[in-house]
Computed example of a mutant assay.
Amino acid sequence: MTTRFVLIGTSHAGNVGATARAMKVMGFDDLVLVAPRWDDVLARQEAIDRASGATEVLAKARIVATLDEAVEGVDVLCATAMTPRDFGPPTSTPREHLPTLVGRRVAFLFGSERYGMRNEDVYRCHVALTIPTAADYGSLNLAAAVQLVAYEWRLALGGFDVKPSAPPVVAADAKAVSGMLAHWEEALVAIRFLDPAAPKKLMPRLHQMFNRAQPTPEEIHILRGVAKAMLEAAKKGTP
């Protein structure tokens, strides 16, 4: 079972080290950084110092250029977005929602310290996790947010003594869904169903629909076949 923590656009080396420490005490070690401010952030002294003994998590961590690379092999994407969006995935607290994900391959996404998560990244997720805080002060340090989510996920998994059962059906990973939708977007433009100059929210809505459907790899293959057929029909000038 995959549990991955993804930090997007992180700007402070200390937060990376503190995140590694927060993960290790809850028994997790799959850390991926997407386009951090510093290319050598995992080796910076501040990161090593704040890891406080969790250096093996830093040693195993990966730096990638895109979110697609970071979520490869994952079924469910959980945004951590404290600010409500007018559109996007359902919002829930970790304690309410995480028990429903036991047995799935899960990635927890955290935005930059200054700006949080971008709307387009939140739209890709299956759920937006919100941590209950005081009404007049809801600002959480990045590593503190990681610690809370890691703790709640460990509780959902049954602590350290209970192993979750394997999922009965393996859904296609998030990268496969994103690639299929890119193929569909090209086809929808080709048949003039989607106007690239005024796309509105068609593609984010389709992303949410397929996230809910949780298609298998075989179903992704079929959907790509449909997109290919649409593109071929458009080239021939047939309806």
Rank of each mutant, 00 (worst) to 15 (best):
W153D: 08
N119I: 11
P89F: 10
A150Q: 02
H12I: 04
V6M: 06
G9A: 05
T238N: 13
R205V: 04
Y123T: 02
L223R: 00
T100P: 07
L188G: 08
P94G: 12
W153A: 07
Q147N: 10
F210P: 02
E152S: 14
E186Q: 14
A51K: 09
T93H: 11
A35S: 09
T19Q: 03
D68P: 01
F108C: 05
P90N: 08
G9R: 10
I220V: 13
H12G: 01
E69Y: 12
A213M: 14
L67F: 02
P132C: 10
E113F: 13
D75R: 01
D29G: 12
F28A: 03
T19F: 06
K228P: 00
G179K: 07
L42Q: 07
E186Y: 08
M203Q: 13
E185N: 08
G159E: 05
H207I: 06
G138V: 09
G159N: 04
A54K: 04
W184C: 03
H207D: 10
D136A: 15
P84K: 07
M180K: 01
A213P: 08
L231C: 00
Q45C: 08
E219S: 02
K24L: 05
Y151F: 15
L206G: 03
K235A: 12
A47K: 01
T93Q: 08
L33T: 00
C125R: 12
D195F: 09
A47E: 06
G111K: 13
V127M: 15
A145G: 07
V102A: 11
D195N: 14
E120R: 14
Y137W: 15
F210K: 02
D39I: 00
A234I: 01
R105C: 03
D161P: 01
R44W: 13
P36I: 05
N211H: 04
G103V: 04
F87L: 14
A229M: 10
